[in-house]
Design a protein around this nucleic acid. Sequence first.
DNA 1: GCGACAG
DNA 2: ATCTTGTCGC
Length: 216
Amino acid sequence: MDTASLAAQQQELARRVILSDQFGTLRRIAGCDVSLRKSRKAADGAACIAVFSFPELVRLEMAVVRGRVEFPYIPGFLSFRELPLLSEAFAQLRQRPDLLILDGQGLAHPRRFGLACHAGVALDIPTIGCAKSLLCGEWKPFALRRGNRSPLMLDGEKVGYAVCTRDGVKPLFVSPGHRVSRDTAVEIVLRCATRYRVPEPIRCAHAESRRAVGQT
DNA sequence: GCGACAG
DNA sequence: ATCTTGTCGC
């Protein structure tokens, strides 16, 4: 499968993305992440989905799955690399979360279909993309005060926001995945990131997936 | 052709 | 992301 046809798949699936708040009371929010272990040809990986109560942020459940990750990392096609294992982990959850926060972009993607959008459409669940660095788009610098934000623009449209979650730290790039609006995505991320720059559910999923591949 | 490029 | 050591700062 070449990137041209994968890009076509993304453009087609992107038509299903919903950019308005389409969910009820949020009681359970999950963080998702995938860690890898270098090897010969493919890589051994582990996906983790950590479910937290909201807004209390108490960990309720966790699913970890180990497996091979064959697809390479290609900017703009991260979901084809991480979604397979994440989907397996999702299927093992005893209780379905109300929303997922993914470690990567959502709408802030060349074809408006980053990992968070793909996960949302594939699993049919509200999602938010929360990346530590930028894939595409532009934003205006702003005072690094918790809560401050700046629109992330791409081809003249607002695809998300650069958001400061802690005083003095670099912003996170937050964009809608599926069934969540741009502004609500920011509010939710801020409510999940109180103590650290990265939202608690993602921090937990990151730590646990790393542990699972032996990155102690 | 050159530079950029989630994880 | 992973591979790696020390180092600056609260």
